[in-house]
Design a protein around this nucleic acid. Structure first.
Lengths: 232, 232
DNA sequence: TACTCGCCTTGATGTTTATCAAGTCTAAAG
DNA sequence: CTTTAGACTTGATAAACATCAAGGCGAGTA
């Protein structure tokens, strides 16, 4: 790793308050690498060799079975993925690919396990990450089992819509095809769902979304912190 | 806690290899209690006061939203639940009730966090539990998004069916209503799904299930370790 | 300007799942 | 043995979602 890369990496919140020894251990066999857009990073079923940390770009985490495929999550800077497989030294349950050109930090799985063992700060941080990921997944299961695809979409839009004023707007952070897989429908159904949200003041044009009145959309979407608040 | 209760509790795999101090800390404010069948234990949205460990009986973990409700998992002896909420000191995302008369161990949330901090063995065990729970949930999401309800049911039956001989049978471990919520369908659809599995050699009569030929059912269900093997 | 390739939309149709309304069965209580 | 309440099934119908097949639309290219 180049020296200026290393200083950026060491400054990550991930490594904050760690002892020198643990950080050195982690970075010893680490890679810091750029990847082009639309590149496969890992494949489900493979042994967990590295813990991946997103420095820059967007990563799609997905699973396939038979001829079907679905997006589990879309990650951005600061997120790490497949921690559970690394910690348990088992195979990946999910695949991952870059959605955009990305920069990633790869930490060797063995070093991660060893660092968790010798550095309580890092161990605690990884446990926190696991617990947060666990809760995110519980929310995802509830989202899938307790809502229709239209409600999921409405709540996704509310999550993206910034600010607290009645009218807000934002730009799609990725393809509609990816969003469809994320919400758990086919692209065709997503398209129709957009049309169904027009009566609630949602306008889509190209890559931008306009919400006329947050409260009106909320009345349909019925968001609840127990599913939609990522900090809870 | 009564002395003979305490000796049973201390012998739990959960506490194995822990230092005296950590065990004492955990058991200081702990409760060891029997609950009748069909009793609400915790409610989603409440602060996480205790970590629950199942000693005996069956616990249904479920979530509700608006007028809908769904079963997330059904737990048995040795399982613990709502660990993530306890570790992060946040509210429960799920509710839980007894399905049968049950015996539970309740460990105070603060003591659990403190024990994780001071006892590396316990900390590691809890992290392992979190990671395993995380992977179970990933499988659950894949199961929901990549399979139809009929495929989920077929795979659930294969999971329950013991042994390796072609013909096997078992008894439903809980109500069909609960199974329906677990699989993610209404009781009516579950009933119809049973009928749809007859051509694949599945016979239901009362509380017992007979699978004529494992291989035939497998050909339809297409199980994969990445979703169906709880140890992977 | 025309052209072309992806992406997205729209329409027609089929499958999967939910809902409502009877019914049947079963097991426990009288 | 009858009664009865709850669990389960079955039928009819509607909603949600997927699939297949065109078509539109916009960003890049010539």
């Amino acid at each position: 790793m180049r020296p200026d890369d290393e200083s950026e990496v060491v400054a990550l919140p991930l490594f904050k308050d760690m002892k020198e020894e643990g950080v050195r251990l982690l970075l010893k066999g680490a890679y810091h690498q750029r990847f082009p857009s639309r590149i496969d990073l890992i494949q489900q079923g493979q042994p967990a060799d590295f813990l991946y940390v997103v420095m820059e770009g967007q990563i799609e985490v997905f699973s396939s079975h038979r001829d079907r495929e679905t997006t589990v999550s879309v990650l951005g800077p600061g997120d790490c993925f497949i921690l559970a497989a690394v910690f348990l030294d088992q195979v990946y349950l999910k695949s991952a690919r870059t959605l955009t050109s990305s920069r990633l930090l790869l930490l060797p799985a063995g070093a991660v396990r060893e660092a968790m063992r010798i550095d309580p700060v890092f161990g605690h941080r990884m446990a926190t990450e696991l617990a947060r990921g666990f809760r995110l997944l519980v929310k995802e299961v509830n989202n899938l089992k307790l809502r229709t695809s239209l409600e999921r979409l409405a709540n996704w839009i509310l999550q993206q819509a910034p600010g607290s004023s009645p009218e807000t707007s934002f730009i799609f952070p990725f393809d509609k095809k990816t969003l469809a897989a994320r919400v758990g429908v086919t692209p065709e159904v997503l398209s129709r769902n957009f049309a169904s949200l027009i009566p609630y003041g949602v306008t889509i044009s190209g890559k931008s979304v306009i919400v006329k009145d947050r409260a009106v959309l909320e009345q349909f979407a019925r968001p609840t912190p127990l599913i939609d608040d990522p900090t809870v």
